[in-house]
């Protein structure tokens, strides 16, 4: 523990309480008593980091899902009719204003890919299961998008910057094309940003100082465990955008994340009853997967697993 954090001699406000002859002795006791700090409850740096990441998570959650407005107070007792009209008028104005403050939320159903056209001409092509949230006043007030999932963005130029907030990371653009993959419930909750045109800035939402600038053909990744995004590196754009043509490209991808992708694409539930295989990585390409079964057949053959059909989907086991 930080022993030098606090003074080894009495603070002035206490020193004055003792006569001159007692002061040296009291200083000694004060200094020695500092030893007891080492026996106090110890909080390691790792514990602090962990606690801070919990706090970040809860703050982000709260800011993404603000509390529902409370139910209005009941008007009781006798109130002058005019006052009632006035109250009703004010309530209408407030409700009207609030309506514009309630954001638009769009969720792409499992098994489908959707193209969302925004008022400024920008388009977002979103993979199954993706959720987007933006202001009803978009793009006039701002162009902020809350995002979870995978999508290809084609952003038109506009005086307001286009900003995507996704699972603790921020992506800022002016006019450009790029792909974001950011699933909150996948292991690592990794955010991957791949650029095909223009320029994009990526930074963790809580640290805007040194954004990573991503240029066409490159990809940068960030996850809550990293202090800053990875240096942009060239990637095979075709592989990253395979989902837009209903293709699958898995490159050294953990099995659990592949299964989640199958669940979203085919709208099925896949129960994983072989936990030790969840993290094992797999590489596979499918240009025209005929059915979820054909993919599961291959996975199970390679990994030495078996699967069976359930009422809502499949169950994988040893």
């Amino acid at each position: 523990m930080d022993k030098n954090k606090h003074k080894e001699t009495l603070p002035n406000y206490l020193l004055e309480e003792f006569g001159q002859n007692l002061q040296p002795e009291m200083n000694l006791i004060w200094g020695k008593s500092g030893l007891a700090e080492d026996t106090d409850t110890y909080i390691s740096p790792e514990e602090i980091d962990h606690a801070l990441s919990l706090v970040h998570g809860r703050i982000n959650e709260d800011e993404l899902m603000p509390d529902k407005p409370g139910t209005g107070t009941e008007i009781t007792g006798w109130i002058n009719t005019y006052v009632r009209f006035a109250v009703a008028a004010v309530a209408l104005i407030v409700a009207g204003t609030l309506f514009f403050l309630v954001p638009i939320t769009a969720t792409v159903p499992y098994g489908e890919i959707a193209i969302i056209e925004l008022r400024d001409g920008s388009t977002i092509e979103a993979n199954s299961g993706t959720t987007l949230r933006y202001s009803r006043l978009y793009p006039f007030l701002n162009r902020h998008i809350e995002f979870n999932g995978e999508a290809y963005f084609n952003v038109e130029a506009h005086k307001n910057p286009f900003i995507v907030n996704t699972n603790g990371a921020t992506v800022e653009v002016t006019g450009t094309q790029f792909n974001i993959r950011s699933w909150r419930d996948e292991p690592d909750a990794q955010v991957s940003v791949t650029v095909t045109g223009g320029e994009v800035r990526l930074f963790p939402a809580h640290n805007q100082v040194d954004p990573v600038i991503i240029t066409p053909g490159n990809e940068s990744r960030w996850s809550p465990q990293l202090s800053e995004p990875t240096r942009p590196e060239p990637v095979a754009i075709d592989d990253v955008l395979a989902w837009r043509e209903q293709r699958f490209v898995f490159r050294e991808q953990p099995l659990i994340s592949i299964l989640m992708e199958l669940e979203r694409r085919y709208n099925v539930t896949i129960e994983m009853a072989a936990p030790e295989a969840e993290q094992s990585a797999l590489t596979a390409y499918y240009s025209q997967p005929t059915s979820v079964e054909s993919v599961l057949d291959d996975i199970c053959t390679v990994k030495g697993l078996r699967y069976t059909q359930t009422t809502t989907g499949f169950r994988i086991f040893n």
Partner: peptide
């Protein structure tokens, strides 16, 4: 000695202990 001081501090009346710990270990002024 550290453990003894801890024992002695723990045996102080509650309010005294609270004021002392805030002053000595958490560095709050009066």
């Amino acid at each position: 000695l550290a453990n003894l001081f801890r024992e002695w501090i723990d045996s102080l009346p509650e309010r005294q202990k609270e004021a002392f710990e805030l002053s000595r270990f958490e560095g709050l002024n009066h």
